[in-house]
Simulated scan of single mutants.
Amino acid sequence: MPEAEQDGSRRRGRNETEEERADRMWTELIQEVRVAQMGVQILFGFLLTVVFTPTYDDLSGTDKTIYIVTVVLGACATGALIGPVSLHRLVSGRRIKPQAVQWASRLTLLGLALLLVTTSSSLLLILRVATHDDYVPYLVAGVVFWYLLCWFGLPMWARHRHTTR
C-alpha cells in the first residue's frame, strides 16, 4: 500500500495532501488578490477625492447618484478583496485551511464582480461628464462586455475546454 494511504492522507493530481494543496492554493489566491486589491484601492482612493473638488457641485443629480453608487460599490469591492486576509488571520492555526481557501476564493470572486461594476460605473460617470453624448451607455456596455469576456468568459471557457475531457 502506498505510504500516503497508510498515513491516512489523500493524495491528488499533484501528489500533495489536502493540507499541502490548501497551502499552495492559498499562496496562489493571495497573489491574485494583491493584483485586484491594487486596482480597487487606487480606484476607490480616486473616487473618494472627487467629492472634494469644486466641480462636484456642478454635477447633475443623476451624476451625483451615479457617483454615490460607485463609491459604495468601491467600498464593497475593497471589503470583499481585503476579506481573505482577515479570514486567514482569524482562522490561522485552527486547522481549517481548506475551508478558508474555499471561502477566500468566494470572497475574491465577489470582489472581482464588484470591481467590475465599480469600474463600469466610474467609466459611465466620467464619460457622462466628459462628453454629455448619447452613445456613452453603449460605450460602457461594450467595456462591460469586454470585462466579462476577459475576467469570466475566457477563464470559464478554458476551464470547460481543458477539464471536461
Results as ranks from 00 to 15, higher is better:
residue 154 L to A: 15
residue 33 V to T: 00
residue 70 T to H: 00
residue 37 Q to K: 00
residue 100 A to M: 08
residue 38 M to R: 15
residue 86 S to V: 12
residue 99 Q to T: 03
residue 79 G to T: 01
residue 146 W to F: 06
residue 26 W to N: 02
residue 84 P to C: 04
residue 51 V to A: 04
residue 52 F to Q: 15
residue 139 L to W: 04
residue 127 L to D: 04
residue 51 V to N: 01
residue 98 P to Q: 00
residue 66 I to Y: 10
residue 53 T to P: 08
residue 131 T to P: 02
residue 42 I to W: 12
residue 10 R to C: 02
residue 79 G to P: 02
residue 154 L to S: 07
residue 3 E to S: 13
residue 22 A to D: 02
residue 157 W to D: 14
residue 73 L to I: 01
residue 35 V to Y: 03
residue 134 D to E: 06
residue 136 V to M: 02
residue 148 L to W: 08
residue 164 T to N: 13
residue 5 E to H: 15
residue 102 Q to C: 12
residue 20 E to K: 05
residue 3 E to M: 13
residue 144 V to Y: 03
residue 13 G to S: 14
residue 65 T to I: 10
residue 114 L to E: 01
residue 163 T to E: 09
residue 151 W to H: 11
residue 24 R to S: 03
residue 121 S to M: 13
residue 102 Q to R: 12
residue 111 G to K: 11
residue 68 I to G: 15
residue 117 V to F: 07
residue 85 V to A: 09
residue 70 T to F: 00
residue 5 E to P: 10
residue 128 R to Q: 03
residue 102 Q to S: 08
residue 114 L to H: 03
residue 59 L to P: 05
residue 2 P to K: 01
residue 77 A to K: 00
residue 92 S to I: 08
residue 150 C to D: 13
residue 30 I to K: 10
residue 86 S to H: 06
residue 157 W to I: 13
residue 135 Y to Q: 10
residue 95 R to F: 14
residue 60 S to V: 04
residue 65 T to Q: 11
residue 9 S to R: 14
residue 31 Q to P: 05
residue 145 F to Q: 11
residue 9 S to A: 12
residue 36 A to T: 03
residue 109 L to K: 05
residue 83 G to R: 07
residue 57 D to K: 08
residue 60 S to L: 03
residue 103 W to A: 13
residue 9 S to D: 07
residue 35 V to M: 02
residue 130 A to S: 07
residue 123 L to T: 13
residue 124 L to F: 15
residue 47 L to P: 03
residue 71 V to N: 10
residue 140 V to Q: 01
residue 16 E to I: 00
residue 123 L to I: 11
residue 7 D to L: 07
residue 19 E to R: 15
residue 165 R to V: 14
residue 67 Y to E: 12
